[in-house]
Computed example of a mutant assay.
Amino acid sequence: MSKKQLNVRVDATTAEIARTRAEQEGISMNQYIEKLVQQDMGETGRAFVEAAAQFMKEYEAVFLAEFGGDREATGQRR
């Protein structure tokens, strides 16, 4: 996978905390930032799935009324 360079500006305290955390984890600053972004993406994905599940739970009756509830005919099971 190719890498892209990002230039970001943060305040001195944030930069020092990031350097310290990367050192504590034994990884480079680049690896630390990449790890944080990947974790954020994972959390966002989980939040989306949870929200979608909640939406379907709340509106299941509306979908069934509109599109029918014959799941056996479509091969779907509960």
Rank of each mutant, 00 (worst) to 15 (best):
R46T: 02
Q38C: 01
G42C: 00
V10C: 15
E43V: 02
G75V: 04
Q39P: 10
A65E: 09
A12Y: 12
A15T: 03
T13S: 15
S28K: 04
A61K: 00
E34N: 09
V37D: 02
E50D: 04
E16V: 10
V10T: 05
D70Q: 04
A52T: 08
S28V: 00
E25I: 02
Y32Q: 10
I27V: 10
R19N: 03
N30C: 03
K57L: 11
Y59M: 07
R78D: 07
Q5C: 11
G26T: 02
R77T: 14
A15R: 05
L6F: 05
S28W: 04
A73Q: 00
F67Y: 14
G45E: 10
R19T: 07
G42P: 06
R9Y: 09
R9T: 15
R77E: 15
R46G: 02
Y32A: 08
G75T: 01
Q24F: 11
Q24R: 06
E23S: 15
G69H: 07
T14G: 14
A73K: 08
E72R: 01
Q5P: 10
A52Q: 09
A47V: 00
G68K: 02
M29C: 15
A61M: 08
L64E: 15
L64P: 05
V62C: 02
M29S: 14
A18F: 01
E34L: 12
I27A: 10
I17H: 11
K3E: 02
L36T: 09
T44K: 11
Q39N: 08
Q31L: 14
Y59D: 08
D11N: 05
I33S: 05
Q5S: 00
F63R: 03
R78P: 11
D70I: 07
A47P: 12
Y32C: 07
Y32I: 04
V10N: 13
E58D: 13
Y32L: 07
T74L: 03
E23F: 03
D70A: 01
Q31T: 14
D11M: 05
Q54D: 12
G75S: 10
G69D: 09
E23G: 12
F67P: 01
G75M: 01
Q39S: 06
E66Q: 03
E50G: 08
M1N: 14
F63W: 02
A73I: 08
A52Y: 03
L36K: 14
N7A: 12
R46C: 05
T74C: 10
A61E: 03
G68V: 08
E23H: 15
Y59K: 02
Q24M: 15
